[in-house]
Design a protein around this nucleic acid. Sequence first.
DNA 1: CGATAATACTTGACATATCAACTAATGTGC
DNA 2: GCACATTAGTTGATATGTCAAGTATTATCG
Lengths: 160, 160
Amino acid sequence: MSERPAPPILGELRQKRPFASKAEEAVVTLFRTTDVIRRAGEAVVAPHGISAQQYNVLRILRGAGRKGLQTLEIAERLVERAPGITRLVDALEKKKLVERERCVEDRRVVWCRITKAGLALLATLDAPVTAHAERTMRKLSAADLNKLTAILDDIRIASA
Amino acid sequence: MSERPAPPILGELRQKRPFASKAEEAVVTLFRTTDVIRRAGEAVVAPHGISAQQYNVLRILRGAGRKGLQTLEIAERLVERAPGITRLVDALEKKKLVERERCVEDRRVVWCRITKAGLALLATLDAPVTAHAERTMRKLSAADLNKLTAILDDIRIASA
DNA sequence: CGATAATACTTGACATATCAACTAATGTGC
DNA sequence: GCACATTAGTTGATATGTCAAGTATTATCG
């Protein structure tokens, strides 16, 4: 008789009942783990007056370079989807981290660009953000880190 | 020269630049994957008039049995933390899925219990929710499923 | 060319999330 | 038993998320 140890997540959530399946256990564990990491990540950027989503927008716009990106293109590239992209960019514009310009050739389009101030803010955040990721994953071997990413990719491919 | 293939997440987010580190790639992949799964999960429960968080509260209260749980105890057991537990339970009470009662012995405490209607709702959701988890993880081998959970547990332990 | 459709946002309404005060009740030390 | 801290929860202010509907502009088809 092999007594399997109870999943750690059960104790963490003070649950006694086992999960209906391994799949459910994995999903709950995934949610929980991501929540923990996200909160820690928000704590990194929040003192600088922006949310994690706003940080993501800034990074996307930095990557886009001079020309910038159309509003809805930003939305498509967000790690975590946000239907309220207009107001997300509104907030960044109010903070002067992003600027917008109506396109002349196609007046439906609005081009968004990161400002100097936005780039400066990102520059100060690069190291802390990378450090946070390293800290989060520090206990994993290189093999496990690759394995984790590969498994997550498999999950997304299957759900497409 | 081994040409490594670009990480799938890069194409998905239309990014050209590689990540600063494997750790950052893993974190972004984790966020993205969880976002995809969460949205699909919300689509399962939303038609029944509740959010994923509210569903989580109901499951916690079902697990707690007759006596119910004190308000803040629910908050501690949530998979994804919610500081606004009062209003979360408010919403469920308004829908008659949960009932509350001020404790007589310690009048600071409020006991929360799931109602018959709450149990009935959960009963109809059990199968679809389990199905969603199975569907999400269907492409993973049993070994990979265990590996995923184990790696995620390691991450949380390290960040404690 | 003119009607219709499609695109690219924007806005309004409402649900949630977050944080910091605040209230009420209980526990603790002197 | 009284001041003070602690606990349990609530409330207010503000930000963010979400969906549906609306506006302006461009594309398409007969």
